[in-house]
Design a protein around this nucleic acid. Sequence first.
DNA 1: GCTCGCTGTGAATACGTATGCCCTGCGCTG
DNA 2: CAGCGCAGGGCATACGTATTCACAGCGAGC
Lengths: 341, 341
Amino acid sequence: MALSDKVTSFDIAALAGVSQPTVSRALRGDKTVSAATRLRIEAIARQLNYKVDRAASSLRKGEARTLALLFFEDPLPDDSHINPFFLSMLGSILKTCALRGYDLLTSFQQLSADWHVDYADSRKADGLILLGYGDWQLYRARVEQLVGQKTRFVRYGSVAASGGLGTVIGCDNRAGGAAVGRHLIERGRRRVAFLGEASDHYPEFRDRYRGLGDALRDAGLAVDPGLHVDALSSELAGYEATQRLIARGIGFDSLFAASDLIALGALRALDEAGLVVPRAVAVVGFDDIPAASLTRPPLTTVAQDYGRAGAVLVDTLVRQIAGEPTDHLTLPATLVVRAST
Amino acid sequence: MALSDKVTSFDIAALAGVSQPTVSRALRGDKTVSAATRLRIEAIARQLNYKVDRAASSLRKGEARTLALLFFEDPLPDDSHINPFFLSMLGSILKTCALRGYDLLTSFQQLSADWHVDYADSRKADGLILLGYGDWQLYRARVEQLVGQKTRFVRYGSVAASGGLGTVIGCDNRAGGAAVGRHLIERGRRRVAFLGEASDHYPEFRDRYRGLGDALRDAGLAVDPGLHVDALSSELAGYEATQRLIARGIGFDSLFAASDLIALGALRALDEAGLVVPRAVAVVGFDDIPAASLTRPPLTTVAQDYGRAGAVLVDTLVRQIAGEPTDHLTLPATLVVRAST
DNA sequence: GCTCGCTGTGAATACGTATGCCCTGCGCTG
DNA sequence: CAGCGCAGGGCATACGTATTCACAGCGAGC
């Protein structure tokens, strides 16, 4: 835009010999404007490179035509690295937003910070997309506030643990966990360790653990609590958890990491301990982040369809903004077998 | 925000027993409002969860307090995957934006599409950050238009080839390429192949190639054009280029890929051809994307400081918006030696 | 030939905030 | 005791668009 001379609908109107409201109507495709007038106006607008002022339009219409994407993490990593799994959704979210005529505001915040209402309260966005792994006990309070304020939002997470708070899109964590269990058993593994928080604070991880339990029990195997080590979703947490697991001295022949980041750390720890994957220990992750196919050996994992997830998140939110009721959606979780098992 | 009852500065004013302008002044920290009044207003505003309406504020002030981040790529990949190197900058860009009090609009577009002026023309954003590898011949026309329209923008790219068009932040591609060349020579390699477009259409790749040439000549070695294969920045392009290189039957003992994505494809092609890395062929990439340390073997590459780059991009743009003159900046490129050499 | 109704357009206004200007009252000075 | 300055705050208005309402003109029907 030229900084000096901002083109307004009045300028167009003057040149077209009509009034400002007619310009507005013509450009929005209102049928009460005759085709001849509309074409004339459109031509002039194009020529002057006129674009509707977003602020004025938003103010008048009371909608921002903008969605806000909030990545959150607790605690915030110092290196500003956004969780690669959620980052993977960005492409399809952007694409779908463009398709639906929405812009996307992006932000990266600590879950425990007080960001959650800002975007909606200040009318910067018509709705929110919440993306991140976080302690549900922290998370819940924020989400309740959003619900209380009637903010439109969708979140990616555990449908099972939605708690009636808003619309949740997620994958079938339990089925995914079960698929991992069956796969490991099929490969002859009997002592499956689990790395990841499995408490109610992390419903997704918990469900993955439960799925594993389902498979073990179905095969007549017991779930050994001694083979469960807590870990948040980071490479470092996976590394340290694996070291703790090894230190326990309880035998295990395979390892199910609640996320690929954890699995990356596990691979590093196993390598350092001289435990060869998959011969000594089979390793499975969850998420299928881009890095999963590049590890040494390539990581068997459970793929979540982030492409579809991104599209569904946007579409659901858009429908919600339009006033339609929206429902949870559970997407399939697909086992991807690679060389680590 | 409650959908029904929007809280405005008039509501606050009524409750505080002052006029609306006083509320506005108080909340913006204007010193003409007495401390007592300000505190009273702030308390009420907090209690009612009042937030300044962004659209109204933008309209009045003529600034959006928003930056637009435009990822572009040509052609657009079907899977909506944004180049991981540029994606890595997102974290620090978001962080710096938050620090400077700006929101960030994000978008992913084809360079050849007509997006480039939309954000500024419609006043959705006060400035643009351009991120992507693209054909400079396509790119140039867009950038010229931005300059012509006096749009504030910064871009990450080749400072050397800035062409006087706007402010460019980039790394020292030529020095990085030279460092790669010296490193390979030091490792006893003499026949270095280069994968990547080296024409003026891709100034960054060209400079990396030139840097390699510098090092070879310094060591008294000749640059063999037969060892140069064109490739755009993608895994597939790297894979195919490597196959073509092998098919040429010209001996080579090392391979410098113009980007890590290309290097990933090269590793795959070499593996399939039974050429062991690094014994038969040493491989070096450029960018140091997160995946680079996970490949088999881990990839030697040239790290660009994307954390600092993101911060500098935002800060430079903010200064430009403030009306200050801004300058190009070349960041260092650092060789990171891993097992692939 | 007059009215009815429809089509196309203009006039007025509201959205919520920020700012230029003016006004009031108080304290201080001479 | 009068006049001056300044602190504090109100009034009016502008930002650019979208919408409601009013209205003009024209063809059709009787």
